[in-house]
Design a protein around this nucleic acid. Sequence first.
DNA 1: TGTAATCTAGAAACCAGTTGCTTAAACGTG
DNA 2: CACGTTTAAGCAACTGGTTTCTAGATTACA
Lengths: 344, 344
Amino acid sequence: MPRTAKGSPTMLAVAEHAGVNKSTVSRILNDSYPKGFSVRPEVRERVLRAAKELSFKPNPFVRGLKAKRTKMVAMLGLRDFGWSSRGADEHAINAMIDALADADYEVCTTFIKPGNPDFQPPRWRVDAAVVVGNSSAEQVSELDQSGIPYVTVNGPAGPAGGSVIVDDAHGAESAVRKLIELGHTRIAYLYSAFDATPPAADRVAHASEIDRRDAYVAAMQEAGLEPVAGYDRTDWTAEQAIEQIVVRDKATAILSYHHVMAVQHVAAIQRAGRRVPDDVSVLCFNDAFPTAEMHPSLTAMSLPGEAMGRETARMILDMIEGGTPKQMLFSESLILRESTARCR
Amino acid sequence: MPRTAKGSPTMLAVAEHAGVNKSTVSRILNDSYPKGFSVRPEVRERVLRAAKELSFKPNPFVRGLKAKRTKMVAMLGLRDFGWSSRGADEHAINAMIDALADADYEVCTTFIKPGNPDFQPPRWRVDAAVVVGNSSAEQVSELDQSGIPYVTVNGPAGPAGGSVIVDDAHGAESAVRKLIELGHTRIAYLYSAFDATPPAADRVAHASEIDRRDAYVAAMQEAGLEPVAGYDRTDWTAEQAIEQIVVRDKATAILSYHHVMAVQHVAAIQRAGRRVPDDVSVLCFNDAFPTAEMHPSLTAMSLPGEAMGRETARMILDMIEGGTPKQMLFSESLILRESTARCR
DNA sequence: TGTAATCTAGAAACCAGTTGCTTAAACGTG
DNA sequence: CACGTTTAAGCAACTGGTTTCTAGATTACA
């Protein structure tokens, strides 16, 4: 009985076990009855039983050789495992995977040699691709040329691709407004390095870095307030930033680029002898662990991750069916917690 | 020029472009010269140039059809995206991916319909598999039967599989000892639910849950101390647990199951009007974000993630070459930070 | 009962690679 | 110059699943 070298049964094995031709097995298992193809119920039963007995699972990549549909979606852009998940996209990705699974699609990723470009168009046949994480315009244009339907999540897309993005500009604007409403006037926007190592020279800024920063500046100016110096720096540590912005420049509120930084900002503020939120309010983007679990818990701009994931899946499925790519914009919502308070 | 439906060039396209047979292309690109096979340098050049010009990338899954080696390793056991990464395995997985990439292996995963068993043996040809995250004995035994070399990371392995595990028992023991050394006697071990939703009835406890708990009990008894009640509960929230263990039962030190819980434990302690570490010391397993970034920063048992990942990769590569599976035990090391102090 | 229409299912081609087998050309040697 | 050996590369089989083509068996109808 033919088995692949590693032991899993092939379709031919199922066919022999059921005493039929492998093409019959293929048609039965795929419920494909083009142009009036049909089977005797008895044969159908026998084949299904054989497949079950051998616990046959088709190789989806081999299916992709000939079949038009592979029922697979490639996930691209994962620099390494865990990094993206620590960002805001985790919930979106999970929701997308679930929604695609409901439509009987598998999501597949490979992790390739670091140093290679973050992603390449998939080398195996897929029905569509989803790009998560950071990606450059050239990389996306490669996908455009490939002809594979694709959707980017929080990243740039070419003319052939859909995109699901979050309205960071609007989020930043309403964050600033909220802080103004709480009486703050010395409101700083803060992006700091994760650790002491300087950022790589060729680091590609994520679109959200620019969107959030620029919207902050615009919102401040619109309110007749002066942006607190340092909003355009990315090369300092949390300690250095807090020393300048809070201790020296007397900021009373900080808008942190994201939750990981915000945790560091809170710690730095407390180490500097100031209290959150009594002396300084902190508000951050991305409502992800540990914003809710901390003490004080962090006020955060929440991205509607699950909705974004569901819509990503919907758009992918639609594009597989020939639908046109769309741009979907999701707005963020402010989750008020303990880290923001009225300005004293 | 033949291209796959999605636009990527095939080996046949490269062959035609270079004016040779596709088998020649295959042999040149794979540097495979069995039994005296050879090429004229000129042809070799021409083929390599053609491959480069068309930016040809072979489909690794199709290669697996016939080839003995696929240069692919399957990663199994990811329940969903991000969950495992939030655990302790993230660094190990990344280090493993890097090390495998250095040996020219790709790591591949698929995310399948939730509700299916956490993993199934891969349906496509791989040279080996690595099991991360939770897995049951039956699932592993399926892998055993499949004949694929495999290694589990922090999980059970069958007779045919290798395993890379962390010495949780020893870690728990030395954590308790450290707290005793700091003068604590009312030391609690605490596992609390992430949120208010009750755990699923069929939840499979991770091996580390049992190891850490049992070693805690043993270490306490060995020191002539009584375990603080509640160490065997998993169905309460952080608030409920702290109320009983700290407020009512006067524990002065807490050993948290892992860093996510520890953050909640610290917050609950502070909300109960106690200070960390002045009133209660907190020590947790897994030195992952935000243990170092918090204020107070958390004393943590650190798993040597990178070393584990490297060794996992080494064992996988060794087993692919026919090596025998091994069990590797790594010991944890205590990272002393601000959340632990001498008992007042 | 003969012929056409419809079921049912097998044979074979195909996808994109790898590999065993074969052979034409180049080379070496007596 | 004839003949054996090595070199260089093509042909074709094979992998596992899908799909097109084809054909025998059964049913419908005159």
